[in-house]
């Protein structure tokens, strides 16, 4: 689902990886592949290491205050509108990208049981030819981090941040690692003041949430569409789990923000405004309702032909919602 692209984080991220998002191969993953991918993801989540696609030391749009954001690799949604498709699949080390690298920054290490791609960050010039060469919506530059390594990274940035946010990809696919990381932060006298937030597509099940809740300060949840059919069309998955997650988080006072990505003519928030408003009004008043505007940056495939969402579209949606009593609306600061 890769929400890093659908909201404004894309704006700050652009500086770091503008090339990343614009040159990704146009490959649509068939539904049947989703199951394989999930199996792959769940296997990797058992490991004590996190599969990290990127770390941002400073973000203003991933929860309250200033935050260090850890983007995990791998997602169980196949959103047509994904702005960072290269974050969807964990790298399977097939090596197809190696010949594409003009800097020879990628090599195959065959010394272990399974071959692994080794990325030399010093040689890399971030041209992203490897992402274009990958046919699996992945990225050979993802890095493995242990809890200890991430804590070290957090300590370096400590004076500047109010907390950390784990995002993705879909962060909850690496739940054991997320729990271990949050637990370690809460246990450290030096770090325990940091709030621990999760940015998620809401697909985690109840059992998973209950394991995480004791260490979680809040979650930002994407609601990609109101109607089942629309949600399915956009993401390839249904949205029952999302509503269950929203309810559970709200009950436990851990729902920080609901995010609605408005895609004019595609998403159904404007058509379902009465039902949507009624639903949002049931949520605790403290919950922020964040409206995000769809844009084409990094988008590949048919969604690249979908209409851009302009300020006027967002204003109209916001007006419709507030007329029906929805409070705490947060609108984008930037439209691309």
């Amino acid at each position: 689902m890769s929400k890093i692209a659908v909201d404004e984080v894309a704006v700050s991220k652009m500086a770091v990886s503008k090339a990343v998002m614009s040159k990704v191969a146009v490959d649509k993953v068939a539904d049947r592949k989703t199951t394989e991918r999930e199996a792959n993801v769940h296997r990797s989540s058992a490991s004590p290491l996190a599969n990290v696609s990127q770390i941002l030391p400073f973000s203003c749009v991933d929860g309250p205050g200033s935050r260090l954001v850890i983007f995990l690799q791998g997602c169980n949604y196949s959103c047509k509108n994904c702005h960072n498709p290269h974050t969807i699949t964990p790298c399977d080390h097939c090596g197809d990208c190696i010949p594409a690298c003009p800097q020879a920054a990628l090599t195959l290490d065959s010394s272990g049981v399974k071959p692994r791609i080794v990325w030399d960050s010093q040689r890399c010039n971030q041209c992203d030819a490897c992402l274009s060469a990958c046919s699996k919506q992945s990225n050979p530059k993802t890095q493995q981090y242990s809890v200890g390594q991430l804590l070290a990274q957090i300590r370096i940035n400590l004076p500047f941040i109010n907390g950390i946010t784990v995002s993705g990809g879909e962060a909850s696919l690496q739940l054991p690692f997320v729990i271990a990381l949050f637990k370690a932060i809460k246990a450290s006298p030096q770090l325990s003041h940091l709030s621990c937030m999760l940015d998620t597509n809401g697909s985690l099940n109840h059992t998973g949430w209950h394991k995480l809740l004791p260490y979680l300060d809040g979650a930002m949840v994407d609601l990609k569409a109101w109607q089942q059919e629309t949600h399915n069309y956009i993401t390839g998955r249904d949205n029952h789990r999302v509503f269950q997650s929203l309810t559970l988080l709200a009950q436990h006072n851990k729902l920080y923000e609901v995010r609605l990505l408005h895609i004019p003519g595609i998403s159904d928030f404007d058509h379902e405004i009465a039902a949507l408003s009624h639903y949002l009004n049931q949520l605790p008043e403290s919950v922020r309702i964040k409206l995000n505007a769809f844009h084409h940056h990094g988008v590949t495939g048919e969604a690249a032909h979908w209409p851009n969402c302009h300020e006027a579209d967002i204003q109209q949606l916001a007006t419709q919602l507030s007329q029906r009593g929805v409070k705490h609306l947060v609108l984008p600061s930037v439209y691309l």
Binding site: V11, S66, I161, S333
Partner: peptide, 19 residues
């Protein structure tokens, strides 16, 4: 600092304290 900070002055405050 990009315009996203406009809705999040707490982030600006924390950046200032960090500096």
């Amino acid at each position: 600092i990009d315009a996203t900070v406009k809705q999040n002055p707490e982030a600006m405050l924390q950046l200032c304290k960090g500096a």
